[in-house]
Design a protein around this nucleic acid. Structure first.
Length: 695
RNA sequence: UGGGGCGUCGACAAGCGGUAAGUCACAUGGUUUUGGUCCAUGCAUUCGGGGGUUCGAAUCCUCCCGCCCCAGCCA
């Protein structure tokens, strides 16, 4: 049933609604997904699959799975198998309608003979090169083939002999007789059949002529009674030809509708390029977890539900677009968050010894399986004297806002105890931290402090004696740039060398010895992981990271590194700065922060009072950049006639977040100050230029 | 100087002459034994640009600009 969530609204459904209203096709809706079995399906195909099968479902119609196998030189059975598996895995059902274009080869020939007999098709002896020459160019019309006016009888005879195998590859073709002067190149007597003495994956050697896409596709649709033939934008130019063939034959005429194919950031989406990655061994096959193929996503741990949800959210339209891969990641996180069992696993282990915990004691503590799903219950995890925690959960010299374990600090071990770090043991040679000596508070068993003592961090951990070793593979985007194809350079040069990280010594809680969750696990505080279908074995586990958890700390840390100056923005407006100059600085601004201020010379270009504000002046100041900045400053009392400021150099604080004011954007501050209650802006004598740094 | 399409927030995308939905991303607060989840708030005075029609235009007309596709015996 399709009740509940509103059906997606897009232009294709609108067309179908109209057709239904107008009584076309007797109220039937019948679509098809027509892949060529020459490669593996990718997420772009998933969009099309969800569209076609989704529409059929919602309109109580049908959707066929049809292989468009008209070119035996490129197609293989292996691909047929993978495609069938992928579409089924996505959750769609074609019942008994698994169809092949090759099943219609006989019928297609009959139709071709009809066109020949009607004088609308002819056998042409021109070579491929000649045909290209005769076709003309985008701006010049083509020339008619010298074979264009052969008699019907001769054409029929020649065509039958082509079919019988009397000619070599490329010797002759059958062409539609349309219009060599058409502005649409597709209509300049397109080829319908070519001679190919090649073995077909299904029909074997039965045929030596094979139909071209334009000739075959519309008829395949027609034969199957398709009502809406949905394809991608590049076929828009082909629609007149699609229509022409069906029109000439007077057969059932489906409506072709084109939509924009999917592009995803940080990856490529063409079968040819994906094939290249596979053939050059840049990835581990079509199902490499970094590939945007359906099989790659499956191996990576994506669920069919998440992919279908993604397809719904990206919508369907005609404009070229590039979908942010973050949306795909959001979809899988959303699904797995609700359903994936939680578990503890340490990826980069750091040994911890709890000095005051009895040597041979083991406690089995309760751990919640999934806080999002109370029905999932609890499991037991063993706690003992020697543990592993994550290396990145300890910092000897913690940065600001780091609130995990540090020397002397107390944190919680999830579901276990509060521990305090007492000593850091290092390798004397390398200085590498090899072990932490900690103590625990027995009163905090389970992770609650009886005295309501607070800790800022909760860490995951694994008991050393009970740990299950595993290999974990971390993945990052396949390419380093959003659109590897942009710029016209070699897209392979944009491959991300760090797209795969293999961690060999991971330590997992013992329940993972035999991983049975069909949708993988959440390793708490890390991400979602699933056993690799190719390499994982009992006793030698290999996990793939599906997607990481969102990591606020990583963002904070990066931000601190990149723009430390931002800390001083707080909420000071231009107004506050003027008076701020002789008021004490806010305590959270340290002396170090002060050194980060970007103080520059600015030249006042314009200055005017701000309507509707008593204190403000609007300044336009050249600070040595391409564009002058607009600044609102609360110095009107000192400058009742702001015009006197024009042409004067002033001190500008340039590294502030722009502040949105009701009058416009304030893009910097002007320093001002004074004594005896008299306010003036800081200005300069001598030779200064806009943009000069003030030290 | 050919033809076919397309331009609405950083990324998708509704809107169909009555005064800019939603999602992702981002930001800020709250809750939290996952720096996860969840919740709240903010985020396009404006729809590629200019003219015009209209009481009223993202929606209609017009001119311009930009981007994509087409010269396979591939699909």
């Amino acid at each position: 049933m399709t009740t509940g969530a509103a059906k997606p609204h897009n232009f294709i459904r609108q067309i179908i609604d109209d057709d239904l209203k107008n009584g076309r096709n007797g109220g039937r809706v019948h679509t098809r997904f027509p892949p060529e079995p020459n490669g593996y399906l990718h997420i772009g195909h998933a969009k099309s699959i969800c569209l076609n099968f989704g529409i059929a479902e919602d309109y109580k119609g049908l959707c066929n799975l049809r292989f468009d196998d008209t070119n035996p030189t490129k197609e293989e059975d292996e691909y047929v198998k993978s495609i069938v598996e992928d579409v089924r895995w996505l959750g769609f059902d074609w019942e008994d309608r698994l169809l092949y274009a090759s099943d219609y080869f006989g019928q297609l020939c009959d139709y071709a003979e009809r066109l020949i007999m009607d004088g609308k098709a002819y056998v042409c002896d021109l070579s491929a090169d000649e045909i290209r020459e005769y076709r003309g160019t985008l701006t010049e019309p083509g020339k008619e083939s010298p074979y264009r006016d052969r008699s019907v009888d001769e054409n029929l005879d020649l065509f039958r002999r082509m079919r019988r195998g009397e000619f070599a590859d490329g010797e002759k073709v059958l062409r539609a007789k349309i219009d060599m002067a058409s502005s649409n190149l597709n209509l300049r007597d397109p080829v319908m059949y070519r001679i190919l003495h090649a073995r077909h994956h299904r029909t074997g050697d039965t045929w030596c002529i094979y139909p071209m896409y334009d000739w075959a596709h519309g008829l395949e649709d027609s034969i199957e009674g398709i009502t809406h033939s949905i394809c991608t934008l590049e076929f828009e130019d082909h629609r007149p030809l699609y229509d022409w063939f069906l029109e000439q034959l007077g057969v059932h005429h489906p409506r072709q509708i084109e939509f924009a194919r999917l592009n995803l950031s940080y990856t490529v989406m063409s079968k040819r390029k994906l094939l290249e990655l596979v053939e050059k061994k840049l990835v581990d096959g079509w199902d490499d977890p970094r590939m945007p193929t359906i099989s790659g996503l499956r191996r990576r741990g994506y669920t069919p539900e998440s992919i279908r949800n993604f397809a719904d959210r990206i919508g369907v339209a005609k404009r070229d677009s590039m979908v942010d891969i973050a949306l795909l990641e959001h979809c899988i996180r959303e699904d797995l968050n609700l359903r994936a069992p939680r578990v503890m696993g340490v990826l980069r282990p750091l040994k911890v010894v709890i000095e005051n915990y009895p040597e041979d004691q083991v406690e089995w503590l309760d751990a919640v399986n999934n806080p999002e799903d109370p029905a999932s219950g609890v499991r037991k995890v063993p706690f003992s004297r020697e543990l592993y925690i994550e290396q990145e959960d300890f910092r000897e010299d913690p940065p600001k806002k780091y609130y995990r374990l540090t020397p002397g600090r107390e944190v919680r071990l999830r579901y276990a105890y509060f521990i305090t770090c007492r000593e850091v043991i290092k390798n004397p040679g390398t200085g590498e931290i090899t072990e932490l000596r900690c103590t625990y508070d027995p009163a905090t068993r389970g992770g609650d402090s009886p005295d309501n003592r607070r800790v800022k961090a909760t860490l995951h951990w694994v008991s050393r004696a009970h740990a299950v070793r595993a290999e974990v593979r971390l993945y990052d985007r396949l390419f380093t740039v959003e659109n590897p194809l942009a710029g016209g350079g070699d897209y392979l040069a944009q491959l991300n060398p760090e797209s795969l990280t293999i961690l060999k010594e991971c330590m997992l809680e013992p329940s993972l010895e035999d991983p049975r969750s069909p949708i993988g696990y959440q390793f708490e505080r890390q991400g979602y992981f699933t056993p690799d279908s190719r390499y994982s074995r009992p006793g030698s586990l290999v996990f793939n990271q599906t997607v990481s958890l969102k990591d606020t700390w990583a963002r904070i840390e990066q931000k601190e590194k990149q723009e430390p100056g931002k800390m001083i923005t707080t909420d000071s407006s231009g107004t506050e700065v003027a008076s701020g100059a002789h008021e004490p600085l806010k305590p959270e601004i340290s002396f170090d922060d002060f050194a980060k201020i970007d103080l520059r010379v600015g030249m006042v270009l314009e200055a005017e009072p701000v309507e509707g504000a008593k204190k403000l002046i609007r300044l336009l100041v050249d600070v040595g950049e391409a564009k002058p900045r607009q600044i609102f400053a609360g110095i009107r009392s000192a400058y009742p006639d702001p015009g006197v400021l024009v042409g004067r150099p002033v001190a500008v604080v340039a590294n502030l977040a722009p502040r949105k004011m009701s009058f416009g954007l304030s893009e910097a501050m002007v320093l001002s100050g004074g004594s005896d209650g008299r306010l003036t802006v800081v200005t300069f004598d001598g030779d200064v230029r806009p943009g000069d740094t003030i030290t």
